[in-house]
Design a binder for these strands. Sequence first.
DNA 1: AGAGTTGATGTCAGTAACTGTCATAACCTG
DNA 2: CAGGTTATGACAGTTACTGACATCAACTCT
Lengths: 196, 196
Amino acid sequence: MSVTVNARILDMSRWEPDARGRMIRAAMELFAERGFEQTTAGDIAESAGVTERTFFRHFADKREVLFDGSEDMRRVTREAILAAPSEASPLDAALAGVTAGGGLLKDRRAHAVRRSAIIEANPALQERELLKLAGMAVTAAEALRERGTPEPDATLAAQSAVTVFQVAFARWVAEDDAADPAARIAETAAALRALR
Amino acid sequence: MSVTVNARILDMSRWEPDARGRMIRAAMELFAERGFEQTTAGDIAESAGVTERTFFRHFADKREVLFDGSEDMRRVTREAILAAPSEASPLDAALAGVTAGGGLLKDRRAHAVRRSAIIEANPALQERELLKLAGMAVTAAEALRERGTPEPDATLAAQSAVTVFQVAFARWVAEDDAADPAARIAETAAALRALR
DNA sequence: AGAGTTGATGTCAGTAACTGTCATAACCTG
DNA sequence: CAGGTTATGACAGTTACTGACATCAACTCT
């Protein structure tokens, strides 16, 4: 059963080469050009060579097309937290998590910048981004609890790390040169700890 | 000018006694009974004795009907931060802000509990709540900056305070007896500061 | 090779969230 | 009382989604 499924997944690129990727690229293009609200789901579908119905089979709603990588980031964050040394404090472990998550963006700075501009221009997209970040915090808190961190420390440390990630990411996107996001995260974490 | 506006506001209760309040109450009722998605805007309007169009003139969208007090909370939070003693640290000032904001809920525990249950049951409503909390953090950071706090400290302190508010509010809602939310905020703030 | 199965897609009809426009009635101001 | 403002109703239109059914290609099994 698992064999069949895997074979199918590997095959996916044959019948229609990367229809999903085409929709994502088309959406980014159109959102950047005309804006999110001025782009209909039908526009994206047409531009990607599929029907509107197919678009909604791939993405739960129009906004989701911009948040394709977020599951991966959640997974990586979780794994990094669980892999952190057991002596690490909850906050340190959570920061290691979001640093690993942020590492996924390192090679895609141009895409991240473009995407951020689109999201910043639309409150509905900001809402979805906030939901994804909240989901990341929930996952991080869960991982911390598995490491033995009690509540409310797990939630507080997880949420603090996500806050650091948000601020550091914004600074990284605003930069001219393409430093590693991890550097910004470390700086921002230091600033957070310095708060009294 | 301000006089005319105020006269109107005070008069509002005459022509149609509290149409807005009726819509809010009807929405809470229906959301709690059937759920958010199973309730149409038309249902709420009808139940409040107005047209669907009137509903959308009062609320930007179906979700907004649950977030009527959030502007007040933002304003109170801002004012408390600006009123905090100038010796107070950014984090202390921000915490004073959210404590004052949370004070608005003290006398409406039953309503807050009911509302929380509705929101918790629906991701779309959670998104909106997160947007409101993010707005609160932005306002708080703004107020801190007016007090002279530089970035990124203003944003970090503001966001930390909002995180404390979220956790404390969740605990306050889950409690059986109705303590002051300020007590929970203080406890949670202490836990945050104890993180290393 | 041929029949049945599975997975992605197209087609089409339907619901509900909004939005724009115009008309009306109550109120306020002068 | 005339004129402007404000809240509303009535109605038409767009778009985000959803469900049901048909198709078509690849894969499985025999």
